[in-house]
Amino acid sequence: MAAAVAAVAAATTAEDEARLLRLEEQAEHGGGGAWDYLCLARRLRARRPAHVLRVGLALLNNASARSGLASEQWTLYEQVATAAMDCQRLDVAKDCIGVLSKQFPGSTRVARLEALLFEAKSEWAEAERAYTQILEINPFDQIVHKRKIAIAKAQGNMSLAIGYLNKYLELFMADHDAWRELAETYVSLQMYKQAAFCYEELILSQPTIPLYHIAYAEVLYTMGGLENLQTAKKYYASTIQLTGGKNTRALFGVCLCTSAINQLTKGRNKEEEGSELQRLAAEVLLNNYKQQAPSKAPLISSLLKNMKLS
């Protein structure tokens, strides 16, 4: 069972993101680095189908470049097929899958792509049937289980998607992507208490990722109530710590939480460290706006004054 648990996808760092954009620009204008770009997009699991389709097809249509990739070309066919489906270029996707099925007859991976093509065509029953056949061979195929959840989601049947996700997480409870998907689904249905539970799981398993801290803080802030607001403020503060004060959303969060807490308590039981935190957050926020968007600095200044934070 442990072997079946999906590997954690690396979160995108500021450096990775800058490199991806640089390579994308380079590849789009024929400056080389096309394969590097496609590899990085795959590693970061970036969803940039239009670019991947253009750059990938240019590589596949160039016979010498394609032969230079050796066995890696099949991974590229798969990547381009998925990007083509995402761009609704089903003809291109069909061609890529055709090449792959000729090369790997009876492959489960190709069968998954064929089922994905049914999904792209909105042929849900066909896709379901294809996935059921794969699950008969391997009942613990995580990707196929996830695709069944995606089908329910694509049809707009959110309660079924949640049911499937909960069943899936009983089997594979260390799958962070599934917890995240469940959290986002709950948030979209305004089921904040359940979403908060999912984010707690994510923070427990990956405590160094600030985006989970901020998502949890926002869910708590949305739920409201003094206790939730105080906890939300702590998680906004931990986001600020993990990002070195570079997360504007978290800085705003601290200010908003402080303002909401002050309104609820009508100014009584003010903690000393709390007021220090809000003062610093407001100061950093104002400095950031003065540096990066000077025209908006007066707006922020008046906003903070209205909140009685500066």
Binding site: A6, A9, A10, A11, T12, T13, A14, E15, E17, L44, R45, A46, R47, P49, T82, M85, D86, C87, Q88, R89, E119, A120, S122, Q142, I143, K146, R147, I149, A150, K153, A154, D177, R180, E181, E184, T208, I209, P210, L211, L242, T243, G244, G245, K246
Partner: peptide, 29 residues
Amino acid sequence: PHSDENRIVSLPANLDFMIFNHRGRALPS
């Protein structure tokens, strides 16, 4: 954790749960 090579700015797209019936369908390709 906040230096540029470690500072996390976004999570990977949840591609395992990707769906295709989005607004991209309406865009000319």
